[in-house]
Design a binder for these strands. Structure first.
Lengths: 352, 352
DNA sequence: GGAGTGAACGAGAACGCTAACTTTGCGACA
DNA sequence: TGTCGCAAAGTTAGCGTTCTCGTTCACTCC
């Protein structure tokens, strides 16, 4: 049983110095493996520091070194597998590069986002990777004004004029839609969450382009927008639930498309459930195309065709860029925008 | 378009002071809304600070105030929905209490965990909430020795002697097993991941107890352990895959239990797939009981019976306890251990 | 009109650490 | 034996804040 030592005054360099009868400076040199200390003294100092439980004060240290080495990640939620991958990979990259990661969740709430950005600012982060709630520059300018490097991913804010990395949602919209059209669909329905973000807009554009290529007119009846719900912790349950409900209502209303193209795999999951309930078969009666290739997609019955997103790659490029900006190894005056190609994964739900 | 001001020297209190022709002290008072500054001067200072983009140096500030206000969360991965909920809720609680959250992922890797703890220490966190990779005290003592409050969740290390909050896995093991036994199963098989942690041990204990209550002997043939795989980002895919494979191999080997009780819903998902492939019907031919009530569980065909875990409640109590320790509002000498009851969710996969 | 009062602001120290510079001391060498 | 050189250690300053204590100055009041 290890003694719990709570409430004790925190040990300082001076404490160690007094304990070994040397100056604080020597102790500092010894512990930081700087030259100018004999091996014997160094060992003695390290042992003593260990013994009395000395932990360097990070604030004092970074006050003089000027390097907090922390990046902030402001993201809507981590329940979404895509953001989950994003954050995991950013954490991994940051860890490797010796950076800490301050996690801030905005919950799709603009006010919460504003506070998150403020927190990042107050926490003294070196840089920020963000996924905005809305397409408005406003809360983020607090960072750019303070001269803190900012990189956005997944959701774009062109007027901000900062670097942006994302999967190519327009291409994805085309790819998924084309896949069902090439398999004979003539009346596909796109189901999306109603978010004021570039992602949805780009996907709808891609959807529309694919339709036009196939000579099918685009109108609002082909595009069902589901009101978005906040609170990240149950977002995925709700999405499946919403997918279920929207299809049930559609069928009740007598509308029966010959293909569903949806904004994420959880929507598709709910949709499966609603179709099964009505005895409508996939893919015989209707094709279903998901988005995201979540872990469960290939285990559904039938396995779900979907779009695999390059979340890891997006995270990698975004962090690499941020680190480059932090190193000043790159001129940040010309904002970089990169779209990474997603990959179509065809499974039985679109077989025909 | 907002000007991007990179590479500029960071503004200091002194810069603001010189700009307005006052002392740094007065500027500090003005910006912190302390008395002793006239309203006019205060407004002028704030405007100027805003104009030149002054952001207080958090390190200088917390060096003197002695309050970093950050908690570290060391967890294996956030792809697991349970940990996802845990981290989301901790973030929420921390945010509300004015704390920052430093996220550290250990990836089920003891070495990575050791480094994560070291990082938390170096980052100067006020306290830590941890989910250990193993049941060994060793890496965590670095925190307790430094006098940094530590609370563990989900996975226990009794010899550490720190507070622990978890769902009651033993009870959960009993509840899930009893559910299938009460529905006629006489030859249930438990599938678990082979992790050296208290969680798995407790669940197996619960399983065994339920069997004994029903007069069924427990032996190793009733308990299939799947080797654990690292790398958090694909952990969920792999779990489903493993679930698929283990059942396929079992069937190939001529073993056919009358119920599966599994360690998480992703395993159940893979299992569904394997059973479907062989034409084995759920629940007619075999009962399936999951664990975790992941978002997809109720949308499967048939909807999956499972155990809903009180992840939010666990997170809440753990953070509440940590904050109490940080406030010194509670004596931390007597470690607290709390087990919160899970809730059985019965769906069609165990109907009989 | 001079003492007392209180608001507005300034000077200096302190937080814990690191870096530049200085001092000490011991052995080698002429 | 005195001096030079170099390793080992100490001294001092400074990072950007906040806090404590002073100082200034206008204003009231007898």
């Amino acid at each position: 049983m290890v003694a719990r030592s709570r409430g004790q005054r925190r040990r300082t360099l001076q404490d160690v110095a007094e304990a070994v009868g040397l100056s604080a400076n020597t102790v500092s040199r010894a512990l930081n493996d700087m030259p100018g200390v004999s091996a014997a003294t160094r060992a003695r100092i390290k042992a003593e520091a260990e013994r009395i439980g000395y932990v360097p004060n990070v604030h004092a240290r970074s006050l003089v070194l000027g390097s907090p080495k922390t990046i902030g990640v402001v993201v809507t939620d981590i329940a979404n597998p895509y953001f989950n991958d994003l954050v995991s990979e950013i954490e991994d990259q940051a860890f490797t590069a010796g950076y800490n990661l301050l996690l801030l969740l905005s919950d799709e709430d603009p006010e919460r986002e504003r506070l998150a950005i403020e927190t990042a600012l107050r926490a003294g982060v070196d840089g920020v990777i963000g996924v905005p709630v809305q397409g408005r520059a406003n809360p983020w300018t607090a960072l750019t004004r303070a001269g803190i490097p900012l990189v956005l991913t997944t959701r774009e804010i062109p007027e901000l004029g900062v670097d942006f990395f994302s999967n190519d949602n327009e291409a994805g919209g085309r790819m998924t839609t084309n896949a069902v059209l090439e398999r004979g669909a003539r009346d596909p329905l796109l189901i999306e969450e109603d978010l004021q973000i570039s992602t949805v807009e780009h996907r709808i554009n891609g959807f529309r382009q694919a339709l036009e290529e196939h000579g099918i007119p685009f109108d609002s009846r082909r595009n069902e927008l589901i009101p978005s719900r906040r609170n990240a912790r149950s977002a995925m349950h709700w999405r499946a639930e919403d997918g279920y409900r929207v299809v049930r209502d559609l069928l009740d209303g007598g509308r029966m498309p010959d293909a569903f193209v949806v904004g994420n795999d959880y929507l598709a999951l709910g949709l499966y459930s609603a179709l099964r309930e009505r005895g409508i078969r996939i893919p015989e009666d209707v094709l279903v195309m998901g988005w995201g290739d979540y872990a469960f997609a290939r285990f559904l019955d039938p396995p779900l065709s979907t779009l695999r997103l390059p979340s890891i790659e997006v995270a990698r490029r975004a962090t690499a860029r941020l680190f480059a900006l932090l190193d000043n190894s790159v001129a940040g005056d010309e904002p970089v925008t990169e779209f990474i190609q997603p990959e179509l994964v065809l499974r039985a739900s679109t077989n025909r």
